[in-house]
């Protein structure tokens, strides 16, 4: 029989995990947040698009176990728990989902192609958000996405040369800038203004 966890237990488990991740609480918080994001991706990639409760379960279990266990690589240990929780979630879903529904492909809709007003609004927001970027970041984004299929590879090779970074590093840099832009555009769309 599983013991009922009290808020105090959860708090103690969280503190224990933080301490295991790093002695500096601030740095531990950053690692925790990063680990949470990676676990979210891991579940998402395995068919659980909104698995925030599963991620919480993993981190909570890791914290509780670390109260009694000394672990060398906490991230790897937590990842192991993640895989276990994933297996449990898959089994549970298999039990709960009717067969005909489970075999249905998860076709997702594309953009609302007919909704040009929404796109116009998004363009207005994008202009505003692009203007808020630093000039160098804006140039990186515009240059990175400017070229189509045939020219793209050569253009990006030129960028890695001129910026003196690897292709992977450039992609990560671009992704960070783009994430900021996406968040900005999403906020702008929510506010209902395009500047």
């Amino acid at each position: 029989m599983q013991a009922i966890e009290t808020p105090d237990d959860a708090r103690a488990a969280f503190e224990c995990l933080l301490k295991a991740l790093n002695n500096d609480r601030s740095r531990a918080g950053e690692i925790y947040e990063s680990l949470r994001q990676r676990l979210t991706t891991f579940f998402r990639m395995n068919g659980f698009p909104e698995a925030y409760d599963l991620v919480d379960e993993v981190l909570d279990r890791a914290g509780r176990r670390l109260q009694n266990t000394r672990v060398e690589n906490v991230t790897a240990y937590t990842a192991g728990i993640g895989r276990l929780v994933l297996l449990e979630a898959k089994r549970k879903r298999a039990r709960e989902t009717p067969l005909d529904e489970a075999s249905e492909p998860q076709q997702r809709p594309g953009p609302d192609a007919g909704d040009s007003a929404k796109l116009d609004h998004a363009l207005g927001c994008l202009d505003r958000c692009l203007a808020n970027l630093s000039e160098s970041d804006r140039n990186v984004v515009l240059r990175y996405y400017r070229y189509a299929k045939g020219e793209k590879v050569a253009a990006r090779e030129d960028m890695t040369t001129s910026l003196e970074m690897t292709g992977g590093a450039l992609r990560v840099k671009l992704h960070r800038i783009r994430r900021r832009l996406e968040v900005c555009v999403t906020d702008c769309l929510r506010e209902g203004c395009s500047g």
């Binding site: 809709p109 998004a122 363009l123 927001c125 996406e182 999403t186």
Partner: peptide
């Protein structure tokens, strides 16, 4: 690709992607 994200997330990202493509 699309099956790994929620419908709302996919819509948002597609809209952003389309806007960025048009703007460029």
């Amino acid at each position: 690709i699309l099956g790994r994200s929620s419908k709302q997330n996919v819509r948002q990202r597609m809209l952003f992607s389309e806007a960025l493509r048009r703007r460029i």
